[in-house]
Design a protein around this nucleic acid. Structure first.
Lengths: 139, 139
DNA sequence: TTCCATAATTAGAATTATTATAGAATAATA
DNA sequence: TATTATTCTATAATAATTCTAATTATGGAA
């Protein structure tokens, strides 16, 4: 709790009740949640929470570098609390988004072809190993 | 014209009037068009074209491997007629999506961490060199 | 050519993520 | 306490995409 507040303050974000709870959810469910997942979790603790607040808070978090926005699934935004450079696999069978630790030559590059780089997004579409072995078991 | 038909047939796509015109537009405007850009171009030639047809056709093209879908701009899908592996830069200033020819170690990989890979998407967010030099000129 | 079956196209409605807006609640400050 | 700024909420607006049902085009067979 105290730690969460410190994290917010270190990023110049005023630690409101809602923001602390949203950060807490991101800490717990290290994953790639979308707004609805976060909203549903929040409802358990703050029944009056508004979805707009979730959107606003996540925008603020993204601006201040507390989360990364993932545009992987075309229909919705995902939020990644892990801001270290890494890639993702979107499993086309089970729909999960899985971290992939690739050694990307451009991970720390500041420019490429004369363009300046602020952010790298890399992801794969395919079938995750769990789905692969489940498929195999069927034969 | 004949060539466009051959391209469609080689991918097992029936060459209808609409599909040929859409392919023609993709050939001409090698870029990363969204549905509205394609739709607006089409209107000049087929005033009765339906936006649903554009969506359906592009889905078909993507299924058959004629185009790649780019989920870079969060608000809309982009379609890339260049299906050779390459990356993209989204310029946060002018909004353009620019091809970036990176030598990615995973470009031809079939699997990673035990997951099987069907598709790779890599892109950068930053400022393109044109915007950079325009900014410099101002000082 | 004419008929038939199938696939493609169309228009409009439905869905859904996200943003905009404006008022209410809360916190900060003096 | 009074004032002010910030945050939060509910609702409406926007816009991309999908769904649906009816219409039209297409290719093959008689």
């Amino acid at each position: 709790m105290e730690e969460l507040i410190k994290i917010l303050q270190s990023k110049n974000i005023q630690p409101s009740h809602q923001r602390i709870k949203i950060l807490e959810i991101l800490e717990k469910n290290k994953g790639h949640m979308n707004v609805n997942m976060i909203y549903d979790e929040l409802l358990k603790e703050i029944p009056t929470i508004s979805k707009t607040t979730v959107y606003n808070t996540l925008s603020t978090f993204a601006e201040k570098g507390l989360v990364h926005c993932l545009t992987i699934t075309p229909e919705e935004m995902r939020y990644d609390y892990d801001t270290k450079p890494h890639h993702h696999l979107l499993c086309t069978q089970c729909g999960r988004i899985i971290d992939v630790d690739v050694r990307c030559a451009y991970a720390d590059a500041m420019e490429i072809d004369g363009h300046s780089i602020e952010e790298i997004q890399g992801y794969f579409k395919g079938t995750c190993k769990e789905c692969l072995s489940r498929d195999k078991a069927k034969h």
